[in-house]
Design a binder for these strands. Sequence first.
DNA 1: CGAATCTCAGGCGAACTGATATGC
DNA 2: CGCATATCAGTTGGCCTGAGATTC
Lengths: 157, 157
Amino acid sequence: MGGHSLAMALRRAYLSMHRTTEAICAEFGVSADQFVLLCALASGKAMKQQELAARTASDANTVRAMLVLLERKGLIERRPNPVDGRARMVVLTRVGQQTHAALWKKTRGLRRRLVGAVERELTESFTQKLVRIERTLDPRKLSVQPADPHKPTTKQR
Amino acid sequence: MGGHSLAMALRRAYLSMHRTTEAICAEFGVSADQFVLLCALASGKAMKQQELAARTASDANTVRAMLVLLERKGLIERRPNPVDGRARMVVLTRVGQQTHAALWKKTRGLRRRLVGAVERELTESFTQKLVRIERTLDPRKLSVQPADPHKPTTKQR
DNA sequence: CGAATCTCAGGCGAACTGATATGC
DNA sequence: CGCATATCAGTTGGCCTGAGATTC
């Protein structure tokens, strides 16, 4: 098992999870990466955009673009920071909280399968666990509405 | 350690690896995902586009678009299949082979760090291993030319 | 005929660069 | 002043849909 197998397994595992999440999120008119943002904000604590970028392993410019989309959809708000005129504090709106809660429920099975794929046999090699993650999460084997990301129900532009 | 940590760790690990690979590949005017295609073709065996899509866990349409780009750059060729008029056989050109070989060398350290991150302590939890993968692969800690994917040296359109 | 393979048009979100304005 | 923060314009590649042509 070389590094190449491991790298490819990591790639496939991630893509599999990402596509499955995308399919689930599409129902609510958001993308998988936007759901990651919602999760980071779900604690209720207001956050600077840069802090969000750090927490989601993303770029500040990318985060901003995603926040603009989420704001248009009414899922987040960006309020001026009273103590720092440069920063804006991002918070979930009520709808944003509800959307996150709904998505959190819908993705529960996914998380359970993820954990199950990893912990079934502790002696198995890391790479093969990643391969199992990919297979377990394959969106084609899921009872989920097929992703229709470009015509989602709630999209508004 | 819940499924959410695991999912986020998988995401971060993949993104870290992907960005590092992107930074290395940018030097040769290709993307990380195009490098995945080159690797799949590196055996020298001609392959149908659909077979390529399956091997790289990608979509046939996506693969086609990437192949068009790679063909323009002279890294691959698509020859008609003599026994099946529908299919086209994809092969690396000489330049494609050389590019793959060079990238394979350049990414050797990455693969080594990847394996090292996983196997350092066999008792550690799977999630923490993924976190270590991410940290070990962080492109900001790499002595690699910063990615400049939009003005690569060999780009031609 | 149906099924497989590829092509094409169109669109979208993520990601990045680089420049800029503003406030600390 | 430098530095941090966010905005904006512009570009790219990946990914997907949906339709069509061609061949088996």
